[in-house]
């Protein structure tokens, strides 16, 4: 009895003590059933392509994607992965997308600064040269989006909730001009709250509502609703922050099957070796 209890408590200790609870100054996130949820979930390639389009046409005006290079788009699990092109640098979509961008370089003949067409090895050029330049124009530095989903509690649910969750500011909340109230923005509003009762959940965000119905038209016939755009871009950003997820889950399955068989064999060996020892 005691031993069972100890085993249980040791295991619970790991689970209970793991996550730190954040302060609840944020509305409960909307939960979306993602194609990549759960141990067998994987990315929906069509959704990643739509999400990339949303990023390219909307988000990239302000947000960089510095850790993703064009050839990543053609890696297994990526939005433009094609088994015909195991080397994504040969993938025509990847090459065409890269060629649409100009990146800074040094002229090899003169040493002057120059612009050239991007190759698949390049990253999408950042919209601002640095955070200071972004702040000077926008009043705040938009975060790089490469790891946004991993860097926020709730991940894709957070991105989806925030983008679709803009709401009129509650009466009594002082929102500076050019800023917006968003109940899903994790923050403490006590200092901006002049109303009665406790301060509302959420925060003040510098980003105007980025997506609206009809803002991005999809080539595959998916409706260009706010909901669709938000889900697709959240899925794309999840891929951007965890591009090896499909590979990880597939490898994991093989590893677990192997380990289960291996453990079974070891247990059988253990029983056989100990069969004549009273212990």
């Amino acid at each position: 009895m005691t031993r069972k209890f100890l085993a249980l408590s040791a295991f619970l200790g790991l689970l209970v003590a793991g996550p730190a609870l954040a302060a609840s100054s944020q509305a409960p996130l909307k939960h979306v059933q993602w194609s990549f949820s759960g141990p067998f979930g994987s990315y929906d390639q069509a959704q990643l392509q739509r999400g990339f389009k949303v990023y390219r046409e909307v988000c990239s005006q302000c947000h960089a994607l510095n850790l993703v290079s064009f050839h990543d788009l053609g890696q297994p699990g990526g939005p433009f992965w094609d088994p015909k092109y195991p080397n994504p640098n040969d993938n025509p979509y990847v090459k065409a997308i890269a060629a649409d961008y100009k990146v800074a370089d040094i002229d090899p003949d003169t040493g002057e600064n120059m612009q050239r067409a991007a190759t698949s090895a390049d990253h999408p050029p950042a919209p601002y040269a640095n955070d200071t330049a972004a702040k000077a124009t926008l009043g705040g530095a938009p975060p790089d989006m490469s790891l946004l989903v991993k860097a926020r509690e709730g991940g894709p649910d957070y991105v989806y909730s925030l983008v679709t969750g803009y709401a009129p500011a509650p009466q009594g909340l002082v929102v500076p001009p050019g800023k917006y109230y968003n109940p899903y923005m994790l923050s403490d509003l006590a200092s901006s709250w002049k109303g009665t009762g406790p301060a509302p959940v959420g925060g003040i965000i510098a980003m105007p509502p980025p997506l609206t119905a009809g803002k991005v038209s999809f080539d595959d016939g998916a409706p260009s609703t706010l909901d669709q755009e938000a889900k697709d871009v959240a899925a794309f950003l999840t891929w951007a922050s965890d591009p090896k997820m499909d590979q990880r889950k597939q490898t994991g399955l093989a590893v677990l099957v192997y380990l289960a068989i291996f453990s079974g064999l070891l247990y059988a060996s253990y029983r056989r070796i100990w069969r004549n020892v009273a212990h």
Binding site: A20, A151, L253
Partner: peptide, 14 residues
């Protein structure tokens, strides 16, 4: 393989 970030903290990706 299935919950690699469960014991970490999301802020460490900033």
């Amino acid at each position: 393989f299935y919950m690699p970030e469960a014991l970490g903290h999301s802020d460490n990706y900033i």
